[in-house]
Nucleic acid binder design. Structure first.
Lengths: 231, 231
DNA sequence: CGAATAGTGTCTGTGAGACATTATCTT
DNA sequence: AAGATAATGTCTCACAGACACTATTCG
């Protein structure tokens, strides 16, 4: 007897983070369907898995992002799976949650001002539907934890960046200031970045900064790079 | 229109690890139901989520372990969620996989010789059904990764242990020898263990070793304990 | 020139790793 | 006492953190 059991609802949700105006921000979408719970509320993008269309939950997550933001996603990883009888009024549900990082502050197609879509500072997200508050908290734990030992925060900025910009994103994510010399030493030791072409001058005064991009290794896996400093 | 989509199959699978005879071993069960795929094959314990009975997937995992091993589980954590159209012949499926660690070598109820249940060295698991080989590989990655910075491997041995036993389990999991002095310094710095009562004499000769157990903190969360050494 | 930002050099304390030494048991 | 294992002490070198210093641009 194959699958005699009642099947739970299966959805994917995505925590999309970026860096805008020096702040870590999360993407919220306004729930539109009047037949579904929390209609009108702002929550994390998500939706049902479509078994005819999606290869797996990761591709379902990409489809959700395509549909709701139309933009390009720099990094996507599975975060955690939330489940239970109580988390969704529609019934016993499983939500496979993904974490997406996209570059901020210079229009990469994510249409931040599109109707029904908005960016919110991660510490200013209001009342979120379902268990989205717990999901967001877990995503922040993950990003902050990985920031201490991986190149992951680099996906929050443009693919070509200066040392200042790279260190700045780590400082925002980790919530502490870093020492430029120590930061460079650690990043260089891990061969996490390589020089890019050209030079860019700073906005006002000062010596122009060299440009860099993530190394091929850093783009594909996140080695045990230790970047955190003492509290 | 609530849930107009075809719902995937939702199962849980559990990678149960222990330490027996100085080896890291995984629990396999023989698949019994002739109506289900891979009947007769040895694979990871798992089963359908029962929405009437299970609070969430973690409780489904505990139920699966109760039913198939009857034993006590020292540590249970979510590992990863595997999904897709191709991984299960019964159809598009989602499997929420858990990692369980149990103490080995001194009968704690897990009935290792029960019919249809067996322990296998993790590097000698044969042909596994579904994507269980990939699941096991991911579990080993997780355990080895966490061994470098947490008290997690301690759940593979008895709750009261000696320094030798604790260091031994780390050596087996990490696959390298450790220095006793350095190991003690790091573990003590993290206040991971506390003395237990009594003294235990060694099997043959030598000074008897003091007994210890995990501290309350280490039992509940896995702090950033750094225990690995250089390769 | 001075201001501003980029980037490098150097000192020092901590602690990991290695290994020597002491302690306490069995036979 | 000899042998075995437990437990602790000590040395050294690498490196993280701190900060001073040099470099290169703009106005």
């Amino acid at each position: 007897m194959t699958a005699p059991y009642i099947r739970p609802i299966v959805t994917v949700d995505v925590v999309v983070l970026t860096l805008r105006a020096g702040q870590l921000q999360v993407l919220e979408v306004q729930r539109q369907d009047a037949a579904e719970p929390f209609c009108g509320a702002w929550g994390l993008p998500g939706g049902y898995v479509h078994v005819e269309e999606d290869d797996d939950t990761a591709s379902a997550a990409r489809r959700v992002l395509r549909g709701k933001t139309g933009g390009h996603v720099g990094h996507l990883e599975q975060l955690y799976t939330f489940s239970g009888a109580g988390r969704d009024p529609r019934g016993w549900s499983v939500s496979v949650v993904y974490l997406a990082l996209v570059q901020g502050d210079d229009g990469m197609g994510l249409r931040p001002d599109q109707a029904g879509v908005r960016w919110v500072n991660v510490d200013e997200a209001g009342e979120l539907p379902f268990d989205h508050a717990a999901i967001l908290a877990k995503a922040l734990d993950r990003v902050r934890g990985k920031a201490a030992y991986s190149s992951l925060p680099a996906f929050l900025i443009a693919p070509v960046f200066t040392w200042s910009e790279l260190m700045g994103v780590y400082e925002v994510v980790l919530g502490q200031t870093l020492d430029a010399s120590t930061f460079r030493r650690k990043v260089e030791a891990q061969m996490m970045i390589v020089p890019a072409h050209g030079q860019r001058r700073h906005t006002g005064a000062g010596r122009p900064a060299g440009l860099y991009r993530l190394s091929t290794d850093a783009l594909h896996d996140f080695g045990r790079v230790v970047l955190s400093e003492r509290a």
